[in-house]
C-alpha cells in the first residue's frame, strides 16, 4: 500500500515533469556551470602541452586511462579540459551577440513600426538586404580586415544579426499601435517615448524572449564554423569549432579529438533549439510553424 503510493507519486511527478523540456534544460545548465567554473572543474590547463602523452585515447579504449578521460590531442592537451573551457567561448560569444542584436533590433523595430512612413520603408529595405546576405561571408570579410579575435567574431555576428529582431518586432508593433490601450494612453497625453516603453514594450517581451532563445543555437553554430575555418577565436584559446578542425586530418587514427567537441556543439545547439521551440509554443503559439 505504502509502496503503491510511492510509485503513484513518482509517476505523477514524472508526468508533470514531462511537460517541461527537462533534458535540454539539464544540458544547458551543465554547460553554463562548466563555463562559469571552468578553472575549478577542468582536470588540466586547456593549453598545457604534454608531448609525451600525445594522442592518448579516451579511458574506455585500450591504451587509455582515467587520467585523460576523453583522451588527448596531437599536442598532448587534455580533450576534456579543452571542451570545458570551450564552453566559455561558445557561451560568452552567444550571450554578447544576442544582447547586442536584440537591443539594436528591438529599438529599430519599435521606432520603425511606430513611426511608419519613410523611415519604416527605408529600414525594411535595409533589413531585407541584411536577411538575404549570408552571415558567414560578412564574418569572413571582417575577419580578413581586422584579423581573428573575440571582438571580430562578436562584431561580425552582430552586423547582420539584428535584422530578424527588427523585422519581427516591427510586425508586432504595427499590430499593437492600433490597440485601444495605446489610443487611451495617447488621449491622456502620454508622449510617444512613454507609450513605447511603458505600454507597448511589455507586450513584445514574449516575442523577444522566444527570438533570443531560438538564436542561441544559430550563433553557436556560426561561431563554431568560423573557428573551424580559422577566422574565429584565435588559438591557443580552446573553441569547439577549432578543436574539430584540429582533429580533422587525424580522424581515422584519433577520432576522439574531433568527435567529442562536435558532440558538445550538437548537444548544446539541439538543447537551445528544443528549449526555444518549447518557450515559443508556451509564450507565443502564433509563431508556431507546425
Amino acid at each position: 500500500m505504502k509502496e503503491d503510493n510511492f510509485w503513484a507519486k513518482i509517476t505523477r511527478f514524472w508526468k508533470k515533469l514531462r511537460r517541461y523540456p527537462v533534458i535540454p534544460i539539464a544540458i544547458l545548465f551543465v554547460v553554463v556551470f562548466f563555463a562559469i567554473f571552468a578553472n575549478l572543474i577542468s582536470p588540466y590547463s586547456p593549453e598545457e602541452i604534454a608531448l609525451t602523452e600525445r594522442l592518448t585515447p579516451p579511458f574506455f579504449m585500450s591504451g587509455g586511462s582515467t587520467s585523460h578521460f576523453l583522451g588527448t590531442d596531437a599536442l598532448g592537451r587534455d580533450v576534456l579540459s579543452r571542451i570545458i573551457f570551450g564552453a566559455r567561448v561558445s557561451l560568452s560569444v552567444s550571450l554578447v551577440v544576442i544582447a547586442i542584436c536584440s537591443a539594436i533590433g528591438t529599438i529599430l523595430g519599435m521606432i520603425a513600426g511606430y513611426l511608419g512612413g519613410g523611415f519604416d520603408n527605408f529600414l525594411m529595405r535595409f533589413t531585407d538586404a541584411a536577411l538575404a546576405f549570408p552571415a558567414l561571408l560578412i564574418a569572413l570579410l571582417l575577419g580578413a580586415v581586422f584579423g581573428p579575435s573575440f571582438y571580430t567574431v562578436v562584431l561580425s555576428l552582430s552586423v547582420l544579426g539584428w535584422a530578424p529582431y527588427a523585422r519581427m518586432i516591427r510586425g508586432e508593433i504595427i499590430k499593437l499601435r492600433e490597440e485601444d490601450f495605446v489610443a487611451q494612453a495617447r488621449i491622456i497625453g502620454s508622449s510617444s517615448a512613454r507609450i513605447l516603453v511603458k505600454h507597448i514594450f511589455p507586450n513584445i517581451i514574449n516575442t523577444l524572449v522566444v527570438l533570443m532563445t531560438m538564436s542561441v543555437g544559430l550563433v553557436i553554430l556560426i561561431e563554431a564554423s568560423l573557428s573551424f575555418l580559422g577566422v574565429g577565436i584565435p588559438p591557443p584559446t580552446p573553441s569547439w569549432g577549432s578543436m574539430v578542425s584540429d582533429g580533422r586530418n587525424l580522424f581515422a587514427r584519433a577520432w576522439w579529438i574531433s568527435l567529442f567537441p562536435s558532440l558538445a556543439i550538437g548537444f548544446v545547439v539541439l538543447s537551445g533549439n528544443l528549449l526555444g521551440d518549447w518557450i515559443r509554443d508556451r509564450m507565443d503559439p502564433r509563431l508556431r510553424q507546425l
Binding site: 543555437g217 574539430v244 580522424f251 581515422a252 548537444f267 539541439l270 533549439n273
Partner: peptide, 23 residues
C-alpha cells in the same frame, strides 16, 4: 530535421570522409 539543424555540418563531412573514404 531537428538533428540536421543542430549538428555542425563540417563535422558531418569529416565523419563521411572517415567512413566512406578512409575505412
Amino acid at each position: 530535421a531537428i538533428l540536421g539543424q543542430a549538428l555542425p555540418s563540417f563535422w558531418l563531412a569529416i565523419v563521411a570522409i572517415a567512413i566512406f573514404s578512409v575505412w
